[in-house]
Simulated scan of single mutants.
Amino acid sequence: MSDDIVLVFDLETVPDVEAFAAAEGLENHPVWSVRRQMGEKVARQVFQRIVCIGSLRAGRDQAGVWRPQAIDSPSLGQMPEPQLIQQFVDQLAQHRPLLVSFNGHTFDLPVLRYRAMMHRISAPGLAARAYFDRSGSDMVDLCDLLSAQERHARVSLQELARVLDLPGKPPGIDGAHVETMMQEGRVAEVASYCRSDVVNTYRAWLRYELFCGRLERKSFETSEKALADFLAPQS
């Protein structure tokens, strides 16, 4: 276990019509009918199917600078959902990192746990640290933290990115578009979108570390430059 390694992550999901049908006893109903009964609001966590898992791993050097080590956003276009989950939880088991997310306690972690259980996946990496302890410090949920879990103080990642002068999401895309994009076969765009969320979350976390005094100004600026340099060959 080391707080010198951080893993920022984000899930992209679509409604799991089959799971909803099984839960509601609608197995014999047409797919379109079941999907309509799910409604247009975001489906509950247990009825979400993971289509992409984005992550950025960074390490802190002896000077206190955070330097990215890896970034990835594998999707259903590359591997089936069980493999997506297994690859991610194995990374947790290997590095036992500090986890960082935006709204992860409310959404991403519950989805991961439900889907791992549904696919009969052994995921000790999810228990490598007390990631599910909402009052603990092993999983930093910026959405919870910055709002102090006060509903009226919560913001979206896009709103936070804009007020912090970060790039934000690609134009014209948000989580509500992922289902349609997957249906249209735009899997690579979904993966790119997921990656942008991970980068924005990481940069927001660096800003929070500066605010808390855990990063000096110079170390913060060097950490930002290290990220830019790391991403430059990929753009």
Rank of each mutant, 00 (worst) to 15 (best):
R36K: 14
S135V: 07
P30V: 11
E12S: 02
V178D: 02
S2H: 08
L7W: 00
A116C: 15
G104W: 01
N200P: 04
G125Y: 04
R57A: 10
A226V: 06
Q91M: 12
L164T: 02
A123W: 12
R151D: 09
C52N: 13
V163R: 09
A21L: 04
D138S: 10
D108R: 06
S223D: 02
M1W: 03
F102Y: 15
R129L: 09
V51S: 07
Q234S: 13
Q37T: 12
V198M: 07
A63T: 13
H29I: 02
C52S: 15
Q234C: 05
Q149Y: 11
T13P: 00
V46E: 15
A43D: 02
D90L: 06
E189S: 08
P15D: 07
V155P: 00
E24Y: 08
A127G: 10
M79I: 06
E40Y: 10
E221S: 14
H119M: 03
D3T: 12
T201N: 11
G213F: 09
I71H: 10
L146G: 06
D229M: 05
G136W: 05
S156P: 13
E224R: 11
L11A: 06
F107K: 03
F47P: 12
F9C: 03
R44C: 02
K218H: 11
R57P: 06
S196C: 10
A127T: 14
A128Y: 10
R115I: 08
E159Q: 14
